Computed example of a mutant assay.
Amino acid sequence: MRSIDDLLTIMARLRDPDGGCPWDLEQDFDTIAPYTIEEAYEVADAIDRRDFADLRGELGDLLLQVVFHARMAEEARHFAFADVVEAICAKMVTRHPHVFADAAADDAQAVAASWEAIKRRERAADGDTDTSALAGIARGLPEWQRAAKLQKRAASTGFDWPGPEPVLDKLQEELDEVRAEFAAGAGRERLTDEIGDLLFVCVNLARHARVDVSTALRHANAKFERRFRRMEALAAEAGSALAGTPLDAQERLWDRAKAEERAG
Rank of each mutant, 00 (worst) to 15 (best):
R2D: 12
R2F: 12
D5G: 09
D6E: 07
L7V: 14
L7P: 02
L7F: 08
I10W: 04
R13E: 14
R15N: 15
G19I: 00
G19C: 06
G20M: 04
P22R: 10
L25E: 13
E26H: 04
T31M: 10
A33E: 15
P34T: 02
Y35W: 06
I37H: 06
E38P: 00
E42I: 04
E42Y: 06
V43E: 07
D45M: 03
I47L: 15
I47Q: 04
D51Q: 05
F52L: 10
F52P: 02
A53V: 13
A53T: 04
L55F: 03
L55T: 09
L55S: 06
G60P: 03
Q65Y: 05
F68I: 12
R71F: 04
R71W: 11
E74I: 03
E75P: 03
A76M: 14
F81R: 03
A82R: 09
V84L: 14
V85A: 04
V85L: 06
A87E: 02
I88K: 02
R95V: 06
R95H: 15
P97E: 14
P97K: 13
H98C: 00
H98D: 12
F100E: 10
F100V: 13
F100M: 05
A103T: 11
A104C: 01
D106E: 10
D107G: 08
D107A: 02
D107C: 12
A108F: 15
Q109D: 15
Q109M: 10
V111I: 15
A112C: 15
W115G: 00
A117C: 12
I118C: 02
K119D: 15
K119Y: 07
R121E: 11
E122W: 02
R123V: 06
A124V: 02
A124S: 03
T131Y: 12
A133I: 04
I137Y: 06
L141E: 03
L141S: 09
E143P: 01
E143R: 10
R146V: 00
A147V: 05
L150C: 06
L150V: 07
Q151P: 00
K152H: 13
R153T: 05
A155R: 05
F159R: 08
P166S: 07
P166F: 02
V167D: 04
L168W: 08
D169L: 14
Q172C: 10
E174L: 04
L175R: 13
V178C: 08
A183G: 00
A186D: 01
R188T: 11
R190A: 14
L191S: 08
T192V: 15
E194Q: 13
D197L: 11
F200S: 05
C202W: 02
V203Q: 09
A206S: 07
R207L: 09
V211L: 13
D212I: 10
S214V: 11
S214R: 15
K223S: 13
E225P: 04
E225V: 09
R227T: 05
M231C: 11
L234G: 00
A235R: 00
A236V: 06
E237K: 09
E237S: 08
A238K: 14
G239D: 05
S240A: 15
S240E: 14
P246S: 11
L247C: 06
A249Y: 03
A249E: 14
E251S: 00
R252P: 01
R252S: 14
L253E: 06
W254E: 03
A257Q: 13
A259F: 02
E261T: 03
R262M: 12
G264T: 10
